[in-house]
Design a protein around this nucleic acid. Sequence first.
DNA 1: GACCAGGCACATC
DNA 2: GATGTGCATGGT
Length: 221
Amino acid sequence: MTQKHSRQIREIFDRLFEAFGPQHWWPARTPLEVIVGAILTQNTSWRNVERAIGNLHAAGALSWAKLRALPQSELARLIQPSGSFRVKAKRLKEFVNFLWTAHGGSLESLFAGSLDEARKRLLAIHGIGPETADAILLYAARRATFVVDAYTVRILRRHFLIPSGARYEDVRKMLKAALPDEVGLFNEFHALFVELGKRFCGRRATCDGCPLAGMPHDAML
DNA sequence: GACCAGGCACATC
DNA sequence: GATGTGCATGGT
């Protein structure tokens, strides 16, 4: 991690924040909603997740007790708009069951200890991979970890800030090392990466008007 | 009709 | 360790 590298990362943040402003992530009212949303949004657009969460809300199912009591098949029916609903119903159930059996239903207990300890605990739950674990830690537990999504990797690679073969954990550690350890910064930065990706890094998108225009860049990547 | 969206687990080489 | 596939909906 060179100072130049770190400066470029910060320049990206500054440009994105200047262009897009605060993103107000995560769009959820409670830690429970963050966790449910994080699982439902796996490989799924947020719009469809909102429909699913709307169904859960209408069914009065947005509480740990109700999620625990709800039959998996009924849960699957409610979250159907978010896609992969059988898989995701199972994942939600596994999360809730683990929260109860291992931590007595206490998120505080689940999130206790060092960042790495809490992260390992989450990753051990079936259905919680690195990105979902980091989203939960950052947006529900307010811990300073970086959420590395596909856009983030693509953008950093295009700007020569990570090697082409960089893995999730490499990118996460690089970003953590390049930035001050501030939850608010990590929160905003991930959301800004997603916004940039949606607007300018889709398959059909062009770089016209991209806030990162002028920075070293390879559009072919 | 292909392709994508705020991934993950599993099989296979 | 790297790559491929199923999961499944709704939008472009």
